[in-house]
């Protein structure tokens, strides 16, 4: 955490990679007083990225701490700040505060089989965790990744899929919403694939992130399949502003998404109103 929590460090853009037509991935080095400094974080944490003079947005960290070096953020263009980020070039700088939030409970996940379920840009926070798990492969059980998007060209991080498929005891199940030319994979919404695969709970944790409607159905389906609420994990990543539990915007019930989350077990979510 920065000495003065509202004061950002500099995130120097080293490279920019196109993820989809509206999403770019920024690889940044963190600088303090003109010198590069280390940035240690956990999978599932986020940072407040800012374009000086435009504003600040909470963005999930999509790289993994098992691969030290540059930090990666996938940014979808949805508003003023993210639009300004999309106009940036390598060498430009952003402000950064972080890492913020709790991150995934990686120690408690050890020894478990893991079912990752993601839709669209929702893969961004899970990508860091997937790569963390695969970099510590022997600490975890079977890995299944269900990932869907509206169309093939909207699947994020497609350069990862072959590596993930090649990892031991790891399967990747891709799906798109409607048939498309040249697509040989599954067709159907993510919840339908979850049902179809019907992976039993057993020693398995489910980690889900995606649009609210996807999450709604996925959570129902997992409950119906016998998953216990404490074995279902999601990341809310919404409504945040200050990122440090002060400004009040992300308050839901007695929780603040930015400091008590963004990662929550379903058992915790059931203790707060469903204003998410």
């Amino acid at each position: 955490m920065n000495e003065l929590m509202m004061i950002p460090l500099i995130a120097r853009i080293r490279s920019i990679r196109e993820v989809t037509f509206d999403t770019l991935m920024f690889e940044v080095a963190i600088e303090k007083d003109g010198k590069e400094v280390p940035f240690s974080y956990l999978p599932g944490q986020f940072a407040e990225l800012s374009v000086f003079g435009v504003g600040e947005s909470p963005i999930s960290i999509t790289s993994t701490c098992t691969r030290p070096g540059l930090v990666e953020f996938a940014v979808r263009e949805v508003g003023l700040v993210t639009e300004a980020m999309h106009n940036m070039r390598p060498g430009d700088n952003m402000g950064i505060r972080g890492p913020l939030g709790n991150g995934f409970p990686v120690d408690e996940m050890k020894g478990k089989d893991i079912l990752f379920i993601a839709g669209g840009i929702g893969l961004a926070p899970l990508r860091g965790l997937i790569n963390y798990v695969l970099d510590n492969r022997s600490d975890f059980g079977a890995v299944d990744i269900i990932y869907g998007a509206r169309a093939p060209n909207l699947l994020c991080f497609d350069w990862e899929f072959d590596t993930w498929k090649a990892a031991p005891d790891t399967r990747v199940h891709l799906t798109i919403d409607a048939p498309a030319a040249g697509w040989n994979g599954s067709v159907g919404f993510v919840p339908a694939i979850v049902k179809e695969l019907a992976l039993p709970p057993g020693n398995r944790l489910a980690v889900a992130c995606g649009p609210p409607i996807m999450i709604k159905y996925v959570l129902e389906d997992l409950a119906a399949a016998g998953y216990r609420d404490e074995d279902v994990i999601t990341t809310l990543e919404m409504k945040m502003k200050c990122g440090v539990g002060k400004c009040g915007r992300c308050n839901i019930g007695a929780k603040y998404i930015c400091v008590d989350g963004p990662v929550f077990r379903l058992s915790e979510l059931k203790t707060i109103p469903s204003e998410y």
């Binding site: 509202m6 800012s50 374009v51 000086f52 003079g53 435009v54 504003g55 600040e56 502003k241 200050c242 002060k246 400004c247 009040g248 915007r249």
Partner: peptide, 10 residues
């Protein structure tokens, strides 16, 4: 009451 918003100005 202590909620706040954050803004940038150039």
């Amino acid at each position: 009451c202590h909620c706040f918003d954050v803004h940038d100005e150039r």
